[in-house]
Protein backbone atom coordinates (compact mmCIF):
# COMPACT_ATOMS: atom_id res chain seq x y z
CA UNK A 1 0.00 0.00 0.00
CA UNK A 2 1.49 3.29 -1.01
CA UNK A 3 0.03 6.42 0.51
CA UNK A 4 -0.31 9.25 -1.96
CA UNK A 5 1.83 12.19 -1.01
CA UNK A 6 1.58 15.88 -1.73
CA UNK A 7 4.43 18.32 -2.17
CA UNK A 8 4.01 21.97 -1.25
CA UNK A 9 5.96 24.94 0.07
CA UNK A 10 5.60 26.34 3.56
CA UNK A 11 7.49 29.58 4.20
CA UNK A 12 9.66 28.74 1.21
CA UNK A 13 10.51 25.28 2.51
CA UNK A 14 9.57 22.39 0.25
CA UNK A 15 7.77 19.66 2.18
CA UNK A 16 6.18 16.34 1.25
CA UNK A 17 3.37 14.96 3.37
CA UNK A 18 0.59 12.38 3.00
CA UNK A 19 -2.52 13.54 1.17
CA UNK A 20 -5.22 14.88 3.48
CA UNK A 21 -2.76 16.27 6.04
CA UNK A 22 -3.73 19.69 7.38
CA UNK A 23 -1.46 22.65 6.77
CA UNK A 24 -0.98 22.87 10.53
CA UNK A 25 0.29 19.32 10.80
CA UNK A 26 2.43 19.56 7.68
CA UNK A 27 4.06 22.67 9.12
CA UNK A 28 4.54 21.18 12.56
CA UNK A 29 6.09 17.98 11.21
CA UNK A 30 8.61 20.17 9.46
CA UNK A 31 9.43 22.30 12.45
CA UNK A 32 7.26 25.28 11.59
CA UNK A 33 5.05 26.33 14.48
CA UNK A 34 1.78 28.10 13.72
CA UNK A 35 -0.01 29.64 16.72
CA UNK A 36 -3.19 27.76 17.72
CA UNK A 37 -5.74 27.86 20.50
CA UNK A 38 -8.78 25.70 19.87
CA UNK A 39 -6.82 22.95 18.18
CA UNK A 40 -5.54 20.09 20.28
CA UNK A 41 -3.73 17.03 19.07
CA UNK A 42 -5.86 13.92 19.60
CA UNK A 43 -9.18 15.77 19.23
CA UNK A 44 -11.13 16.44 16.06
CA UNK A 45 -10.33 19.82 14.49
CA UNK A 46 -12.77 22.63 15.25
CA UNK A 47 -11.53 25.74 13.45
CA UNK A 48 -13.15 28.20 15.81
CA UNK A 49 -10.45 30.51 17.16
CA UNK A 50 -8.83 31.72 13.93
CA UNK A 51 -5.42 32.03 15.53
CA UNK A 52 -3.90 29.65 12.99
CA UNK A 53 -4.74 31.73 9.92
CA UNK A 54 -2.21 31.47 7.09
CA UNK A 55 -1.84 32.92 3.61
CA UNK A 56 -1.96 30.80 0.48
CA UNK A 57 -0.45 32.27 -2.71
CA UNK A 58 -3.01 33.21 -5.31
CA UNK A 59 -5.84 33.83 -2.84
CA UNK A 60 -6.63 37.07 -1.01
CA UNK A 61 -8.36 35.06 1.70
CA UNK A 62 -6.78 33.75 4.88
CA UNK A 63 -7.14 30.06 5.75
CA UNK A 64 -7.31 28.36 9.15
CA UNK A 65 -4.37 25.95 9.00
CA UNK A 66 -5.92 23.46 11.43
CA UNK A 67 -8.81 22.58 9.12
CA UNK A 68 -7.36 23.29 5.68
CA UNK A 69 -5.87 20.24 3.94
CA UNK A 70 -2.70 20.60 1.90
CA UNK A 71 -2.78 20.39 -1.86
CA UNK A 72 -0.10 19.88 -4.43
CA UNK A 73 1.92 22.95 -5.36
CA UNK A 74 0.41 25.08 -2.61
CA UNK A 75 2.56 27.95 -1.34
CA UNK A 76 1.79 28.71 2.27
CA UNK A 77 3.00 31.70 4.30
CA UNK A 78 2.71 31.35 8.07
CA UNK A 79 4.37 34.60 9.16
CA UNK A 80 3.71 38.08 7.84
CA UNK A 81 2.78 41.50 9.12
CA UNK A 82 -0.79 41.01 8.00
CA UNK A 83 -1.07 37.66 9.79
CA UNK A 84 0.41 39.08 12.97
CA UNK A 85 -2.17 41.86 12.87
CA UNK A 86 -5.00 39.37 12.45
CA UNK A 87 -3.72 37.14 15.21
CA UNK A 88 -3.33 40.10 17.53
CA UNK A 89 -6.86 41.13 16.74
CA UNK A 90 -8.19 37.62 17.41
CA UNK A 91 -6.48 37.58 20.81
CA UNK A 92 -7.82 41.03 21.67
CA UNK A 93 -11.33 40.00 20.72
CA UNK A 94 -11.12 36.95 22.96
CA UNK A 95 -9.87 39.08 25.83
CA UNK A 96 -12.63 41.62 25.31
CA UNK A 97 -15.42 39.05 25.04
CA UNK A 98 -15.45 38.07 28.73
CA UNK A 99 -13.83 38.85 32.04
CA UNK A 100 -10.11 38.16 31.80
CA UNK A 101 -8.13 39.51 34.73
CA UNK A 102 -4.92 37.52 34.71
CA UNK A 103 -3.72 38.74 38.10
CA UNK A 104 -6.61 37.03 39.90
CA UNK A 105 -6.94 33.99 37.65
CA UNK A 106 -6.05 30.45 38.72
CA UNK A 107 -4.29 29.97 35.40
CA UNK A 108 -2.04 33.04 35.65
CA UNK A 109 1.31 32.10 34.06
CA UNK A 110 -0.14 28.79 32.82
CA UNK A 111 -2.67 30.14 30.35
CA UNK A 112 -2.46 29.65 26.61
CA UNK A 113 -4.36 32.85 25.89
CA UNK A 114 -2.06 34.87 28.11
CA UNK A 115 1.09 33.38 26.59
CA UNK A 116 -0.20 33.99 23.06
CA UNK A 117 -0.91 37.59 23.99
CA UNK A 118 2.64 37.91 25.28
CA UNK A 119 4.17 36.23 22.26
CA UNK A 120 2.26 38.43 19.86
CA UNK A 121 2.94 41.56 21.86
CA UNK A 122 -0.68 42.32 22.70
CA UNK A 123 -0.27 44.83 25.52
CA UNK A 124 -3.66 46.47 25.37
CA UNK A 125 -7.17 45.69 24.14
CA UNK A 126 -8.59 47.95 21.46
CA UNK A 127 -12.16 46.79 21.87
CA UNK A 128 -14.59 47.70 24.57
CA UNK A 129 -14.49 44.94 27.13
CA UNK A 130 -17.55 43.03 28.24
CA UNK A 131 -17.21 42.49 31.94
CA UNK A 132 -19.48 39.45 32.06
CA UNK A 133 -21.07 38.06 35.21
CA UNK A 134 -21.88 34.55 34.12
CA UNK A 135 -22.45 31.75 36.58
CA UNK A 136 -19.50 30.13 38.32
CA UNK A 137 -20.44 26.54 39.17
CA UNK A 138 -18.56 24.89 42.03
CA UNK A 139 -21.25 22.36 42.90
CA UNK A 140 -19.09 19.42 41.80
CA UNK A 141 -16.89 17.76 44.43
CA UNK A 142 -13.72 19.17 42.93
CA UNK A 143 -14.33 20.51 39.40
CA UNK A 144 -15.10 24.20 38.99
CA UNK A 145 -16.16 26.15 35.92
CA UNK A 146 -15.92 29.92 35.67
CA UNK A 147 -17.74 30.74 32.46
CA UNK A 148 -16.44 34.29 32.53
CA UNK A 149 -13.03 32.99 31.55
CA UNK A 150 -14.25 30.59 28.87
CA UNK A 151 -13.10 31.34 25.32
CA UNK A 152 -15.51 28.79 23.77
CA UNK A 153 -12.73 26.74 22.23
CA UNK A 154 -14.82 23.54 22.76
CA UNK A 155 -11.80 21.48 23.79
CA UNK A 156 -13.62 20.34 26.92
CA UNK A 157 -16.68 19.31 24.88
CA UNK A 158 -14.58 17.37 22.45
CA UNK A 159 -12.49 15.58 25.06
CA UNK A 160 -15.64 14.65 27.00
CA UNK A 161 -17.34 13.36 23.86
CA UNK A 162 -14.47 11.87 21.88
CA UNK A 163 -12.10 10.58 24.53
CA UNK A 164 -14.11 10.05 27.71
CA UNK A 165 -17.11 9.16 25.55
CA UNK A 166 -19.93 10.47 27.74
CA UNK A 167 -20.80 13.86 26.20
CA UNK A 168 -21.72 15.50 29.49
CA UNK A 169 -20.71 18.87 28.13
CA UNK A 170 -22.17 20.90 25.31
CA UNK A 171 -22.82 24.55 24.49
CA UNK A 172 -26.10 26.32 25.03
CA UNK A 173 -27.16 29.45 23.17
CA UNK A 174 -24.81 30.87 20.57
CA UNK A 175 -22.49 33.65 19.59
CA UNK A 176 -21.30 35.73 22.50
CA UNK A 177 -24.00 34.27 24.77
CA UNK A 178 -22.86 30.67 24.32
CA UNK A 179 -22.00 28.82 27.51
CA UNK A 180 -20.69 25.39 28.42
CA UNK A 181 -23.43 23.29 30.05
CA UNK A 182 -23.66 19.93 31.79
CA UNK A 183 -26.52 17.63 30.76
CA UNK A 184 -29.77 19.63 30.62
CA UNK A 185 -28.03 22.73 31.95
CA UNK A 186 -27.78 21.14 35.39
CA UNK A 187 -25.36 22.09 38.10
CA UNK A 188 -22.23 20.02 37.67
CA UNK A 189 -22.71 18.31 41.01
CA UNK A 190 -26.08 17.00 39.80
CA UNK A 191 -24.84 15.71 36.47
CA UNK A 192 -25.74 12.05 35.97
CA UNK A 193 -23.39 11.45 33.06
CA UNK A 194 -20.15 13.09 34.26
CA UNK A 195 -17.63 10.47 35.37
CA UNK A 196 -15.46 13.05 37.14
CA UNK A 197 -12.54 12.03 34.94
CA UNK A 198 -11.01 15.55 34.98
CA UNK A 199 -10.10 15.47 31.31
CA UNK A 200 -11.95 18.71 30.66
CA UNK A 201 -9.87 20.46 33.31
CA UNK A 202 -6.72 18.96 31.83
CA UNK A 203 -7.27 20.39 28.36
CA UNK A 204 -8.87 23.78 29.07
CA UNK A 205 -6.40 26.31 27.65
CA UNK A 206 -7.38 29.02 30.13
CA UNK A 207 -8.58 29.16 33.72
CA UNK A 208 -12.22 28.36 32.98
CA UNK A 209 -12.32 24.73 34.14
CA UNK A 210 -10.02 23.87 37.02
CA UNK A 211 -9.72 21.64 40.04
CA UNK A 212 -10.55 23.20 43.36
CA UNK A 213 -7.53 23.72 45.55
CA UNK A 214 -5.00 22.31 43.12
CA UNK A 215 -2.51 24.48 41.26
CA UNK A 216 -3.25 24.64 37.55
CA UNK A 217 0.40 23.94 36.84
CA UNK A 218 -0.20 20.42 38.20
CA UNK A 219 -3.63 19.72 36.77
CA UNK A 220 -3.28 20.75 33.13
CA UNK A 221 -2.24 17.88 30.91
CA UNK A 222 -2.65 18.96 27.31
CA UNK A 223 -1.28 15.71 25.83
CA UNK A 224 -4.00 13.57 27.39
CA UNK A 225 -6.13 13.23 24.25
CA UNK A 226 -3.19 12.31 22.03
CA UNK A 227 -1.88 9.92 24.65
CA UNK A 228 -5.16 8.05 25.06
CA UNK A 229 -5.79 7.92 21.31
CA UNK A 230 -2.36 6.39 20.86
CA UNK A 231 -2.81 3.86 23.68
CA UNK A 232 -6.24 2.86 22.35
CA UNK A 233 -4.58 1.46 19.26
CA UNK A 234 -3.04 -1.16 21.60
CA UNK A 235 -0.04 -1.53 19.37
CA UNK A 236 1.59 -3.96 21.81
CA UNK A 237 -1.18 -6.46 21.06
CA UNK A 238 -0.44 -6.63 17.38
Amino acid sequence: MTATTVTLKIDGLEVTVPEGTTILKAAKDNGIIIPTLCNLEGLSPYGGCRLCLVEISGSPKLFPACITPVSSGMEVTTQSERLTEYRKMAVQMLLAERTHICSVCVANDHCELQSLANQLGVDHVLFERNWTRLEIDSSHDFLVIDRNRCILCTRCLRVCDEIEGVHTLDLKLRGKDAQVIMDLDEHWGNSCSCTSCRKCAKVCPVGAIYIEGEPVSHTKHKDIAEFITERRQRKWKQ
Binding site: H167, D170, D183, L184
Partner: peptide
Protein backbone atom coordinates in the same frame (compact mmCIF):
# COMPACT_ATOMS: atom_id res chain seq x y z
CA UNK B 1 -39.49 22.38 29.09
CA UNK B 2 -36.68 20.34 30.60
CA UNK B 3 -38.89 17.35 31.32
CA UNK B 4 -39.89 17.21 27.67
CA UNK B 5 -36.29 17.61 26.47
CA UNK B 6 -35.19 14.82 28.80
CA UNK B 7 -37.96 12.64 27.42
CA UNK B 8 -36.86 13.34 23.84
CA UNK B 9 -33.17 12.81 24.57
CA UNK B 10 -34.03 9.45 26.15
CA UNK B 11 -36.21 8.36 23.25
CA UNK B 12 -33.63 9.30 20.63
CA UNK B 13 -30.74 8.09 22.73
CA UNK B 14 -28.95 11.42 22.55
CA UNK B 15 -26.92 13.15 25.28
CA UNK B 16 -29.17 15.63 27.13
CA UNK B 17 -26.58 18.40 26.79
CA UNK B 18 -26.66 17.99 23.02
CA UNK B 19 -30.46 18.24 22.94
CA UNK B 20 -30.39 21.28 25.22
CA UNK B 21 -27.69 22.84 23.08
CA UNK B 22 -29.76 22.46 19.93
CA UNK B 23 -32.93 23.68 21.63
CA UNK B 24 -31.19 26.86 22.80
CA UNK B 25 -29.19 27.47 19.62
Amino acid sequence: DKELLMDISGSLNLPPSHVFGVATF
